[in-house]
Design a protein around this nucleic acid. Structure first.
Lengths: 161, 161
DNA sequence: ACTATATCGGACCAAATCGGTCCTGTAAAT
DNA sequence: ATTTACAGGACCGATTTGGTCCGATATAGT
């Protein structure tokens, strides 16, 4: 279906909320799992699981114990969507062979490895162009359209079937 | 895992092979399922299934009966990767809410719809920039790198964890 | 020191999706 | 009439996903 997993979806939502509530000085506010779960209206265990993995991967800093929680560890301008996806569900690899060699059985006979790498490269690139900061700016619907980096020039429609 | 399904993977491989073997005049050569299956070294039923759906969706033209098979219905320059993906596994929609409204339960309370649409738009755009013809040109490994439309300027690496 | 609060690291399970096979029907060529 | 090849869909095992739960550990406040 070419979807991100829900974990990734939720994870980026959480990161956006956290980045959005950081103070202007850029200092990172601490939020605990329960508070975040309430805010995004998701079950606590789910949110908890995601935050744990974000902390493990170094995107968030965790603060244990009473009054603990999580805070961003990176500047929202420098954290890209590509990075968030990588951390939450592994490297962006649209096919087996796109990422690293030796995964796909057909690798030798198949002439498609380079084409797939091309596709993968283009998508990855697009995702590296968007930062967490861009996302919170895009919260305004109008901004979302205007800030679109590339102006689409729609290619030919399919002949329909 | 942010992968295309294998069906989509195989489908694009098949289309590339077909486009690659069309004659220079642009006339569309007929290939039957068995021949294609042999060529890409995939089980016949799988290839067959994919070709059927490509025909149903109007990307291929099917020719029934003895000496029948499938031929491309569209010019390789005008058929984009985005279209192929859409046809093989549905619209490019990285999250539930990215494509059309009313799918996601959290839609009202959640401020993320526009950001997701931004992300989706950027990816979709990238995929619309690549045509089937580009893919067969990229079969040469060097070309794959050189033809990359956007020059990556790598953003900050993660602080590691 | 004790208690309450939070994270840590997994195990665990039901449900959905995916990859692949198979079968019956129909159209066209010889 | 026979053979070739597509059409359409049922089907099934294996994997992945989404979500829950638990025992352990660290910190703050009293």
């Amino acid at each position: 279906m070419f979807r991100l997993s829900k974990i990734t979806d939720y994870g980026i939502v959480l990161l956006s909320h956290m980045a959005g509530s950081d103070d202007r000085a850029g200092d990172h506010v601490i939020h605990n799992a329960r508070e975040l779960a309430d805010h995004v209206d998701l079950p606590l265990p789910v949110v908890s699981k995601i935050l744990k993995s974000l902390a493990r991967e170094g995107v968030l800093e965790s603060h244990r114990g009473a009054r603990g929680g999580y805070s961003l560890k990176t500047n929202a301008e420098r954290l890209t969507v590509a990075q968030m996806i990588t951390v939450l569900e592994g490297p962006v690899a649209m096919t087996e062979c796109a990422d690293s060699a030796g995964q796909c059985l057909h690798e030798e006979s198949c002439a498609m490895r380079s084409p797939w790498q091309l596709i993968n490269h283009v998508v990855k690139n697009a995702l590296e162009e968007i930062s967490l900061a861009d996302l919170i700016r895009a919260t305004d619907p109008l901004a979302a359209i205007l800030s679109s980096p590339i102006q689409p020039d729609q290619p030919a429609r399919l002949g329909d079937g």
